[in-house]
Design a protein around this nucleic acid. Structure first.
Lengths: 337, 337
DNA sequence: GCCTAGCACTCTGTGTTCCCGAGTGCCAAG
DNA sequence: CTTGGCACTCGGGAACACAGAGTGCTAGGC
């Protein structure tokens, strides 16, 4: 039903439309890509492609434009991910290597990706799930308050100020800290709740109310910040593009963590580092945009997702190449620290 | 030269133009605001105002529009800051009170301000300058690496992974930590450099190379993050407005920390909590936008700045009220923690 | 001297019409 | 199955007219 030439025509349409932003007609197509057939033949193929729903025409007599379905076929079967140039690779490497902490890694990554793709980049902070506890710190602020600092092996630091139910001396706080650390050091975050459950019993009776308060905050910290935090960059790149849904909707979505999460999607457990491409109406919200995303993280320890968001009319091969490359480099950086 | 009625006319023009977004003519003006004079008289006044450069007309025979100079006069002499409603005040209070740490305070503040003003809100993280050291932590990661965590009294936490020049045992690290804390606890960040200068001499000779490395990173941390970090929210509010300079420029500026800093401006030391209003061409970059900003922080300890950025055509009284109110509440919250 | 009414004038924005050209679909011939 | 030819469609730009809002100016009234 769709022979090779029809597929070639579809590929040509996608490529031309992406680069020119204008509906592409049969004549221009036959010329630019040497298809060795006449415009009339191309027209027949186009009619077939339109019949099948891969392309459409904005108005009766204009050129053709790919549909979401057309882009999908293009991405799946007609294109190859385009690798980055050597210069780009080196630039990425040196830029990311300069990061001083996790925050910095994430910030640099998101900017880098935005610049590289000229789209909006989105990066999710590594989740705590598979991380392990590196250190727990209790810093007395005054008699009734302590600051809880939780440091994980991914370099993440969580902090909470805790109001104690009663005054507790510094030495007793120090003791609790020691107990906490001996108990949790190196343990996976997911196992913290059970490890901690019988902990109050190992403390003197008078410390238990304070300990209970501290522990409840600790557990809260673990679940609350699970994988909530997402940052984006490159909003300026939206200015040029036109979205079927208004620009406003896109900007609003970018500031809604929840929506962004849904857009980035889940890392499928079987193929963790595979690129996910969601085109137009395939997206949960924001039907008019496409999302290219992938998981990243060190080794088999899949941590979080990153990707870019842009108009459906996007250079998928290049974008996919950039997303994949950046994800790899970030994973390396994270594994090294 | 500018009698009371002319000023009233200017005020009316600004108010009408801000609310309707259309050049305002003499007839509509005489009707809506009961000026008790005829359109013709208003026209004469308008001609005078235009002569002085307070208003202008987009084309011959359209209504008048305020110039930057006109807005300036309006803000300085013709308007009063509009206080928030009781409901709004309560909403702010409860929303900010729910914050769990400094990050959260800043995030909530910027979102709140964006929603309240329907503009882009910008918040600078409290600077470290006047902060004091609450605690310094050194966490051994392995034989050659430690993590430095610096906690300040403003609830800020800075962290760095440090590569040591040689292997150092955990007990020696613990000792360094103790020395560091005894030396720095409670001291102002600005005094850290001198306090730390003779510190290596108080350590055993064999620890000095490692200590030097750690100290250099510590000092770096202090200067580097000085007042660098700025966040914004509410970019979606830009979608409706029209800027003389393109939307793209505004979005780009928002992602440039340096530009944002310049836009927020300096806190003038004599009147720290005064509202700064920069209108259109008064701004260093982004000549087409206005910025309403103010310092915030606890008590006389002025910490950082926050504000909003929007089109020159902005409801200044309301915006100024919101900025002032939010700054006050955040200052309270910070003082309490 | 200031305010007002009237009037002629100048624009912008909008609606209409017209036409060109790109692009199509279809048909018949190779 | 491919190709050339042909009639058809429709969007978008140019030309044009027109109504309406708003102005500046001048002359008269308080």
């Amino acid at each position: 039903m769709l022979d090779d030439r029809k597929l070639a025509v579809l590929r040509a349409i996608v490529e031309d439309y992406v680069s020119t932003n204008e509906p592409v007609g049969s004549k221009a197509l036959a010329e630019r890509h040497n298809l060795k057939v006449s415009p009339a033949t191309v027209r027949n193929d186009m009619a077939a492609l339109e019949e099948e729903g891969y392309i459409t025409q904005p108005h009766t007599s204009a050129g053709r434009v790919p549909t979401d379905k057309g882009y999908r076929l293009f991405v799946d079967r007609l294109s190859q991910i385009k690798p980055l140039s050597g210069a780009e690779r080196r630039a990425i490497e040196t830029f990311l290597a300069g990061a001083v902490d996790l925050d910095d890694v994430v910030t640099r990554t998101v900017r880098l990706l935005a610049q590289l793709t000229r789209q909006v980049a989105v990066v999710q902070y590594p989740t705590l799930t598979r991380s392990t506890v590196r250190h727990v710190e209790l810093v007395p602020l005054n008699e009734r308050r302590v600051m809880l600092v939780l440091i994980t092996n991914t370099g993440r630091v969580e902090q909470r100020v805790i109001e104690l139910p009663e005054e507790v001396e510094d030495t007793r706080i120090a003791h609790m800290r020691a107990v906490l650390n001996s108990c949790l050091d190196g343990c996976g975050l997911s196992s913290v709740p059970e490890l901690v459950s019988d902990l109050p019993e190992r403390l003197p009776v008078e410390d238990r109310p304070a300990a209970a308060t501290i522990l409840s905050v600790l557990l809260e910290t673990l679940v609350e910040r699970h994988d909530e935090k997402i940052v984006f960059a490159g909003a300026a790149n939206l200015a040029g593009a036109d979205f079927s849904t208004g620009l406003r909707d896109v900007l609003e979505a970018l500031e809604e963590q929840v929506v962004l999460m849904r857009l980035l999607g889940e890392t499928t457990s079987d193929t963790p580092s595979a690129l996910t491409v969601r085109i137009g109406s395939e997206n949960p919200y924001l039907r008019g945009t496409s999302v290219v995303a992938t998981g990243y993280g060190s080794g088999d320890n899949q941590l979080a997702r990153l990707g870019v968001l842009g108009p459906t009319r996007m250079d998928y091969p290049v974008t996919m190449g950039a997303v994949r490359a950046v994800a790899r480099y970030v994973s390396q950086i994270l594994a090294a620290s």
